[in-house]
Simulated scan of single mutants.
Amino acid sequence: MSVRDLTVLGSASAVPTKSRNHNGYLLRWDGHGVLFDPGEGTQRQMAHAGVSANDVTWICVTHFHGDHCLGVPGIVQRIARDGVEHPVDAAFPASGRQYWERLRHATAFRDTDVIRERPVSGERMALDTGDAPFTLAARRLSHPVEAYGYRLEEPDGVTMLPAELGARGVGGPLIRRLQEEGRVTTPEGRTVTLDECSVTRPGQKVAFVMDTRLCDGVRELADGVDMLVIESTFLNQDAALATEYGHLTAAQAGEVAALSGVRHLVLTHFSERYPADDEKRFVAEASAAFAGDITLVHDLDRIPMPQRRLT
C-alpha cells in the first residue's frame, strides 16, 4: 500500500527546547523516504516516530548550520549498523563538502557503501532520481551560508473517464492497452485515442524551504505545490531580525503560499525566543495572507499529503 505523508522529527531552529527537537523531516512517498535536514537527535526521534533507517532512501541537507545537519553522523552510522542494503542518495551543497565529510566520517564505525553523494551547485539543479516515482530539484536560496531548497514532483498522469470509454465501446483489457499505447481499435473497428477518454491528472508536488530570506528561489520552489514545508522562524514584530539573519516570518510564509497557489502550508523551524503561547500568533499571521489549510507542526506529527487534484 502506498503511503505519502510527512513525519516531523524536529521543529526547532538553532536551539532545541524541551518540546522541540532540532530539525528533521521524513517525507514518505510510495516506498521511498526523503529525510530532510537531520539535526541533532534525529536518530532517536525516528525511534519515537516508528520509522527506521531502512525507510530512508534520500538524505537532503539544505545547508551546513548545525540544526540542519548535526544528526547526519547518527543517521549514517545507523544505516550501517542496521545493514541497510538499498542505495541512499545524499544531496548537500557542494560548497560545504568539507562539512559533509566531517559529518559523514565523524567517528570510528564499520562503514557502509550504500550512500551515494549528490552534491548540489549552481542556481538550480535537477537530481538523478533513477526509477523513483518522482523528480527532485534543488534551488539556491538566500542565507548567510550557501543554502538550497528542494522540490519533489510526481509526473502528471491521466484519469480515465468511464462514460467516454463506454460510449466508444472500450472495456476490459482494451482500457489497459489504451493507457499504455495511446490508441486502440475496438471490435467494431473504431479507432479510439486516449485523449478522447481521459483528462490529465496533475502529479502531486512538495516543496521544502528552510533558512532563507524572501527571494526568487522561494517562490520558484513553492509555485503550485500541494504541500509547502517552510520555515517561519520569526513573528512579524521581529521582521528586521529575520532579514538580518536570513530567515522568514510566519507572515512572509503565508504571503508566499498565497501568491504561489499552495494548497497546504506547513509552518516549522520556530525560534526558541517565543513561548508556546505564541503558537497561535504564528498561525494568525500566516492566515492573514493565506486562506488555505495551515498546519503549525509539533514534533512527531504525521501530516498526510492533501487529496489528489482530479484535474
Rank of each mutant, 00 (worst) to 15 (best):
residue 99 Y to S: 14
residue 294 I to S: 01
residue 308 R to E: 14
residue 217 G to P: 07
residue 300 L to I: 01
residue 12 A to Q: 06
residue 217 G to I: 06
residue 162 P to T: 07
residue 12 A to W: 07
residue 196 E to V: 12
residue 153 E to T: 12
residue 152 L to A: 11
residue 186 T to G: 02
residue 244 E to K: 06
residue 240 A to K: 10
residue 167 A to C: 08
residue 158 V to N: 09
residue 21 N to C: 03
residue 10 G to H: 03
residue 255 E to H: 05
residue 134 F to A: 00
residue 160 M to R: 05
residue 197 C to T: 15
residue 233 T to A: 11
residue 126 A to L: 15
residue 72 V to E: 05
residue 1 M to A: 12
residue 155 P to T: 01
residue 251 A to Y: 08
residue 175 I to S: 01
residue 210 M to R: 11
residue 210 M to P: 10
residue 141 L to W: 09
residue 241 L to Y: 07
residue 148 Y to H: 09
residue 242 A to R: 00
residue 174 L to G: 04
residue 309 R to A: 14
residue 4 R to K: 12
residue 30 D to N: 10
residue 166 G to Y: 10
residue 142 S to N: 14
residue 62 T to P: 15
residue 266 V to Q: 06
residue 223 D to W: 13
residue 74 G to N: 01
residue 164 E to N: 13
residue 217 G to Y: 03
residue 75 I to D: 00
residue 171 G to Y: 12
residue 170 V to F: 09
residue 239 A to V: 14
residue 1 M to E: 10
residue 115 I to E: 03
residue 116 R to K: 10
residue 74 G to R: 00
residue 95 S to G: 15
residue 12 A to M: 05
residue 105 H to F: 13
residue 226 D to G: 12
residue 21 N to A: 10
residue 71 G to E: 00
residue 310 L to T: 15
residue 267 L to N: 02
residue 240 A to M: 06
residue 266 V to P: 07
residue 80 A to V: 09
